[in-house]
């Protein structure tokens, strides 16, 4: 029941990894590397915020990778046909919101189980995009496209601000806004939420739309790091995001997830890959070690077992 234990376990794993890196490698903690690491994992972090809310309500969204790809392509198509870049960005975000809202509609109002609905949209959107682009990349982007025409460091700053704002505001909102509490309440007990006058359907619809929007936004920020846009980006993104959120301690049955846990989960999973390269470990073993570390990070949960009886019946 207590998410702090998972967070402590995660933190411990991360610290252990960091110590190992500090001891065995040079350069991992250089500003340049941290910046690169941050930028590469920015989409995962942003979408994880949305995914955490989706999981909080007891649902799941596996279509984020496809939405990410579509938004990237939309962004590129718009920009390459002369639409101002900021407007293309907005359009791409809007497309993200729209696709998220489609998911939300199917799940909240048509009442299709979220795993089926988003599985369907994941496959359909991804293959639809493939059909449309026939795999070709988008090129011929205008000069001011890369980094929104800013300097590289200026753009990085912008991204940092965006990520901090999104995670921070969401964390605060989940704790202190009526809306945020409604999300938690919906996931905790859907029937009780309805009885308490919370419009659970709107809540579910909302979190899917927001998640779509975040996928769109991260696609925009990610695509302007380059000067051409591949049409198959974001493959497997959903799994990375869900893994991060789940490792961060979110219960898939809903009602329990923390932002701290999610951020730690994203940090752990996004560091592993590059850490292994820095440690000089052969790439063939990368997946095995990654899996092992996930298992170790959740092992702290076994402590929970010891306490559960206690919490259920003893007054605090």
């Amino acid at each position: 029941m207590n998410p702090r234990i998972r967070e402590a376990g995660l933190l411990l794993t991360i610290v252990a990894l960091m110590l190992l890196l500090a001891w065995r490698t040079t350069g991992f903690f250089s500003a340049a590397n941290l910046t690169d690491l941050f930028l590469a994992n920015m989409p995962v972090m942003m979408i994880a915020v949305g995914m955490m809310m989706v999981i909080l309500t007891g649902e799941i969204d596996i279509s984020v990778g496809s939405i990410f790809a579509i938004s990237s392509v939309v962004m590129g198509k718009c920009a390459s046909t002369g639409v101002p870049i900021w407007l293309s960005g907005l359009i791409a975000c809007a497309v993200g919101v729209l696709l998220g809202a489609l998911n939300g509609r199917l799940i909240a109002y048509v009442r299709i189980p979220s795993i089926v609905a988003t599985l369907a949209t994941m496959v359909a959107l991804r293959d639809g995009l493939r059909w449309y682009t026939q795999g070709s990349w988008i090129q011929g982007l205008p000069a001011g496209f890369q980094w929104f025409g800013m300097s590289q460091s200026g753009f990085t700053g912008l991204c940092v601000v965006a990520v901090v704002l999104i995670t921070g505001l969401t964390a605060l909102g989940l704790r202190n806004l009526r809306m945020g509490r409604a999300i938690v309440a919906t996931g905790s007990n859907r029937m009780a939420a309805c009885a308490a006058g919370i419009d659970a359907r709107r809540v579910v619809f909302g979190v899917f739309a927001v998640t779509g929007g975040l996928a769109g936004l991260s696609a925009v920020l990610n695509s302007v790091r380059f000067n051409q846009i591949p049409s198959n980006s974001g493959l497997g993104l959903e799994l990375k995001v869900i893994a991060a959120v789940a490792v961060g301690g979110a219960a898939i049955t809903g009602g329990s997830a923390t932002m701290t846990g999610t951020v730690l989960g994203v940090i752990l999973l996004s560091c592993i890959g590059s850490a292994l390269t820095f440690l000089g470990i052969n790439a063939y073993w990368e997946k095995a070690i990654q899996g092992g570390i996930i298992l170790i990070a959740v092992a702290a949960d076994t402590l929970k077992l010891q306490r559960r009886d206690h919490a259920k019946t003893l007054p605090a």
Binding site: R181, V184, A185, G187, S188, N189, M191, A192, A193, A195, A196, G197, I198, G255, S256
Partner: peptide, 15 residues
């Protein structure tokens, strides 16, 4: 009909 993940205070307040 309570929210198991919320505190007693919040359970009362939400309704």
């Amino acid at each position: 009909l309570l929210f198991p993940h919320l505190t007693v205070a919040e359970n009362i307040a939400l309704s």
